[in-house]
């Protein structure tokens, strides 16, 4: 199966490690993926709050481009917000004739057409459902022993549309990382909002939310947090100064992308997975792969 890769603005900036590790993992597994040419910003949640129809039009342009570049291919959108916005656009354009009319007309002006033929999917979905956990298990060369991982799924890939996983207790990342040999910790906050853009605009509220997640993950015994969204990763990693352990020493929990962990298990080199870009070094799993700050 051929996939079109829609990076989204984050994966070219703060989310660079995600892009590096995702493409490395796909390449190692032989998954055929091409970047969507000439893609534009999906609008994320911000644009939706300013002008809804414009937001849908921005998303629809990408969908139209995907249809044109490789009709029938699925679009992989790793960033949770992009994933949601593209899917939401599809739903609303088909549900509301007025929106559909305006978007179609505007797309026509820039010589594009969106027919509703494209499927927007998340890398977790592709790895678990298309590629298959068993196959991945067979490809694992260096199981991630020594890592107690709390999988943080975030909100927008299970809400409001939960096409590939359970809305309340998603298991895709857990199954993947278990197959990679990690000790996966069960915890109740895996889909609770990380604060999104509020960490920048209303820091008390934003970092307050991230803090709760870090505290609970640590309490449950996690020494690593795996994420699948660049904003979640940023929020959980970058504001950890406040966390202090029982002895008063600074506790820092590495927050990495699930693709980075998967890549390690597949035997890929840490540098190719962007692990050197992390602010908090990943504690080395028992098999001597080292991430250096």
């Amino acid at each position: 199966m051929h996939y079109l890769y829609y990076p989204g603005c984050s994966l070219k900036a703060t989310g660079k490690p995600y892009e590096e590790s995702l493409l490395a993992v796909f390449r190692a597994l032989g998954i055929d993926v091409d970047e969507l040419k000439d893609w534009n910003c999906c609008g994320a949640t911000t644009y939706m709050g300013v002008d809804e129809v414009q937001a849908f039009a921005l998303a629809a342009r990408n969908l139209a481009l995907a249809e044109r570049q490789a009709s029938g291919a699925a679009v992989v959108a790793p960033c949770n917000a992009c994933y949601l916005v593209l899917n939401k656009a599809q739903h609303y354009v088909s549900e509301y004739p007025d929106i559909r009319k305006r978007v179609t007309r505007a797309l026509k002006v820039i010589e594009l057409e969106y027919c509703g033929d494209v499927n927007v999917r998340h890398p977790l979905d592709i790895l678990v459902n298309d590629y298959g956990i068993e196959r991945i298990g067979q490809e694992v060369k260096q199981p991630l022993a020594g890592l107690n991982v709390a999988c943080y799924c975030g909100c927008q890939i299970v809400r409001p549309y939960s096409t590939f996983d359970d809305q309340h207790n998603p298991q895709s990342m857990e199954r993947l990382l278990r197959a990679a040999g990690a000790n996966v910790i069960d915890w109740p906050l895996k889909t609770r909002c990380c604060g999104a853009a509020l960490t920048g605009t209303i820091p008390t509220a934003g970092t307050g939310l991230s803090d709760l997640l870090l505290k609970e993950a640590r309490r449950r015994g996690a020494n690593t947090i795996a994420t699948c969204c660049p904003l979640c990763q940023h929020n959980l990693e970058c504001y950890q100064a406040e966390g202090r352990g029982e002895s008063g020493t600074l506790v820092q929990t590495p927050v990495v992308y699930f693709t980075q962990l998967l890549g390690l298990a597949l035997g890929l080199k840490p540098k190719s997975l962007g692990l050197k870009r992390m602010l908090i070094a990943l504690q080395p799993p028992a098999q001597a792969t080292r991430a250096v700050l």
């Binding site: 949640t45 939706m48 909100c155 927008q156 809400r159 409001p160 809305q167 609770r192 909002c193 604060g195 999104a196 853009a197 509020l198 209303i202 509220a205 939310l209």
Partner: peptide
Amino acid sequence: IWLCSSCYSCTV
């Protein structure tokens, strides 16, 4: 309305 982070918990 400004604090809403669009996590969709309410909608669900």
